[in-house]
C-alpha cells in the first residue's frame, strides 16, 4: 500500500498541471460559450444559446463543411505518402532508419511559420515553382498558385506529414515481419499478404496518424492564412477572427466547443475501430 501512495505523489504534479492548464480552461471556455457578447470588450455574463444558433447559420456551417473537406483531402494525401514512408523506414537497416528519420526531423528545427514563408517563395507568381515549370517548358505563364486551395492543401500535407510517418513507423516497427513470411508461405501473394496481415497489424498506427493529421488540420488557421490569403476560411480562421477582430469571445468559445466535440467523436471512432485508447507512437 505504501508503494502505491508514493506513486500517487509522483504523478500529482502532472494531475495538477492538467487540471490548471487543461481542465479549468476547457470548463471556462465551455461556460463562456453560453454567455453573451459584451458591447465593447469582454463577456457579458448572461446565459444564452444564441452562439450555438449562430453556428447553424449557413455561413458558419459552411466553414465547418469546408474545413472537413480540406481535412479529408489533406489526410488522404498524407496517408498515401506517409504510410509507405513510415512502413519502409521500419523495414530498413538501422543506419538507413536513422537517415530517413533525420529527413523527417530536420524541418522541426525551424519554426513552422518560417517554413510556411518558404512555401510563399515557392508558390508566388514568378516564384521558384513557376520558374522551374516555365524553364522546362511545361507552362507559358505563371500559375499563380499562391493564395489558392491547392497551396493550402500542400501546406497542410507538408506540415502534418511527419506525424503520420512517425505513427505508422512505430506500428510497423513493432510488427513481426515473420508474420508476412508466414502469410506468403501459406499461399498469399504479396498484395494479399499486405492487406490481410501487414495493413491489419499496422492499422493502429495508421489510424492514430489519421487522428494526428485530421484533428490539427481542422484548426491550423495560420496555414490557411499564409498560403490561402483570406480566400480560404477554415474553422480555425473563424475562431481566431472572432477572438481578435470580431471580439466575440462567447461565439469563438461555442465554435471551439463544437470543434472539440467533432474531434472527440473522431477519437471515439478510432477507439471503436482499433480497440485501443493508445495513440500509437505518440502517447
Amino acid at each position: 500500500m505504501k508503494k502505491t501512495k508514493g506513486c500517487i505523489w509522483l504523478v500529482m504534479p502532472m494531475y495538477i498541471f492538467t487540471l490548471i492548464f487543461v481542465a479549468f480552461p476547457f470548463l471556462y471556455m465551455f461556460l463562456l460559450s453560453f454567455m453573451s457578447r459584451a458591447k465593447v470588450w469582454g463577456v457579458d455574463f448572461t446565459f444564452t444559446l444564441a452562439n450555438y444558433e449562430k453556428i447553424l447559420d449557413p455561413l458558419y456551417l459552411g466553414t465547418f463543411v469546408d474545413s472537413f473537406k480540406l481535412a479529408f483531402l489533406s489526410t488522404g494525401i498524407i496517408v498515401l505518402l506517409g504510410y509507405p514512408y513510415g512502413y519502409f523506414m521500419a523495414r530498413m537497416s538501422e543506419k538507413w532508419k536513422k537517415r530517413m528519420m533525420l529527413l523527417i526531423m530536420i524541418p522541426f528545427w525551424t519554426s513552422a511559420l518560417i517554413r510556411l514563408y518558404g512555401w510563399i517563395i515557392v508558390f508566388r507568381s514568378n516564384g521558384i515553382l513557376d520558374k522551374v515549370l516555365t524553364g522546362i517548358g511545361l507552362t507559358d505563364s505563371p500559375l499563380k498558385l499562391l493564395y489558392t486551395y491547392p497551396a493550402v492543401v500542400v501546406g497542410m500535407v507538408y506540415g502534418l506529414f511527419p506525424f503520420m510517418v512517425l505513427a505508422v513507423y512505430s506500428s510497423a516497427e513493432k510488427m513481426d515481419y515473420r508474420l508476412v513470411e508466414a502469410a506468403r508461405d501459406l499461399g498469399a501473394s504479396s498484395v494479399k499478404a499486405f492487406f490481410t496481415v501487414t495493413l491489419r497489424l499496422t492499422l493502429p498506427g495508421l489510424l492514430s496518424g489519421v487522428i494526428l493529421t485530421f484533428v490539427p488540420s481542422m484548426g491550423l488557421f495560420f496555414i490557411a492564412d499564409i498560403l490561402g490569403g483570406n480566400k480560404i476560411l477554415l474553422v480555425g480562421n473563424v475562431i481566431q477572427e472572432q477572438m481578435t477582430k470580431g471580439r466575440n469571445i462567447p461565439f469563438a468559445a461555442a465554435m471551439s466547443v463544437i470543434l472539440m466535440i467533432l474531434t472527440s467523436l473522431m477519437m471515439a471512432l478510432y477507439r471503436r475501430v482499433s480497440g485501443t485508447t493508445e495513440l500509437e507512437g505518440i502517447m
Binding site: 515473420r178 513470411e181 508466414a182 508461405d185
Partner: peptide, 10 residues
C-alpha cells in the same frame, strides 16, 4: 509449408 520458430501465428 513452414512451421515457424516462435510459431508466427496471426
Amino acid at each position: 509449408n513452414t512451421v515457424f520458430q516462435n510459431y508466427a501465428l496471426f
